[in-house]
Amino acid sequence: MALESAGRKLLPLLLTVEHGLKKPVWGCQMCGQCVLHSTGMVCPMTCPKTLRNGPCGGVREDGHCEVKPEMQCVWVKAYERKDKLHLPQIWKDHYNELRPPVDMRLKGTSSWINLITKRDAWLPAGWRARKESQK
């Protein structure tokens, strides 16, 4: 709780800092539940279909996007980068994990705060139950 209220006070500042840093570097869309670390530091929200679990079947023969032919497919780029960048092995291992649907309520909030407060770990009850039953 203490963390949460500290977070709330810091919120405007952190939001500005987070967006100011992540927007120019990774094209951050402020989904509020950042997965950059597990996707080779490529933001999946810059995929026109906002896919969180890998590339669609429409990737072109040149590796470019179905929707925006001038752009390399975000997921092709992520796949190449995850091996090239010196990222911790555990982040690389997370590349193919099943990411849950985006919580639209978090759009425009700070993923850093949501990480600290564990707000970004919230899952719909049905999703959580299945995840636990698979462990």
């Binding site: 279909k49 896919l51 679990n53 099943l98 849950p100 649907p101 985006v102 049905g126 139950a129």
Partner: peptide, 26 residues
């Protein structure tokens, strides 16, 4: 407007959740 609120793998998982007798919400 394109939706893509879920992606393919997520939609598969949601179908599995329904198979267990609940919606996504529980």
């Amino acid at each position: 407007r394109r939706v893509f609120d879920l992606d393919g793998p997520q939609a598969v998982n949601v179908a599995s959740i329904l198979n267990s007798g609940t919606y996504l919400s529980g």
